[in-house]
């Protein structure tokens, strides 16, 4: 059974059609279904995340989903700083790195959709002064926002 309701799918299709500009890639580090039962290494939310991202990607031609098996691409994952799965890396016109660790459920799902749109457009709703400050940062910075599903 799909995770997204028909109404959700319809709504998201419309949002994507109206607001996505350039292609956006979802790189998902996960466990493939066949391996979900490895003892001692079970990703509790990978299955749900895989399904959810497949459904989201099916709603627009501009969304590309790349599913990577974390255990088979550990070097690449390490280079990207991915240590936990499921992990989503968004790629498009973003200058920095935008990632989601854990299943993007509840309110975080809305955040993911908004971020996909920003990444597709290369613009945000941040104020001009904020953008100016960010453009002048002297050093790399890692911002982690910890949330729980609500």
């Amino acid at each position: 059974m799909p995770i997204l309701s028909n109404a959700d799918r319809e709504y998201l299709s419309q949002v994507f059609a109206e607001r996505l500009v350039d292609p956006v890639k979802i790189r998902l580090y996960t466990q493939k279904l066949a391996q979900l039962s490895i003892p001692g290494y079970e990703c509790m939310t990978c299955r749900e995340t895989n399904e959810l991202m497949e459904e989201v990607a099916s709603l627009s031609d501009k969304i590309e989903l790349e599913m990577l098996d974390f255990l088979q691409v550990r070097e690449q994952a390490a280079r990207e700083g991915i240590t936990e799965i499921p992990a989503i890396v968004l790629e498009g016109k973003n200058k920095g790195k935008v990632r989601f660790i854990g299943v993007p459920a509840g309110y975080e799902f809305a955040t993911l959709i908004e971020d996909m749109i920003d990444v597709s457009r290369g613009t945000t709703k941040l104020q001009p002064l904020s953008r100016e400050i960010l453009g002048k940062l002297a050093r790399p910075v890692h911002i982690q926002v910890f949330v729980t599903p609500t």
């Binding site: 989601f100 854990g102 941040l126 904020s130 911002i143 949330v147």
Partner: peptide, 19 residues
């Protein structure tokens, strides 16, 4: 949003109840 605007920024949203 900040990571979209600056190549210096890496932004993670972490669903912490899983970890």
């Amino acid at each position: 949003m900040m990571a979209v605007e600056s190549d210096k920024v890496t932004a993670d949203v972490v669903e912490v109840s899983e970890f």
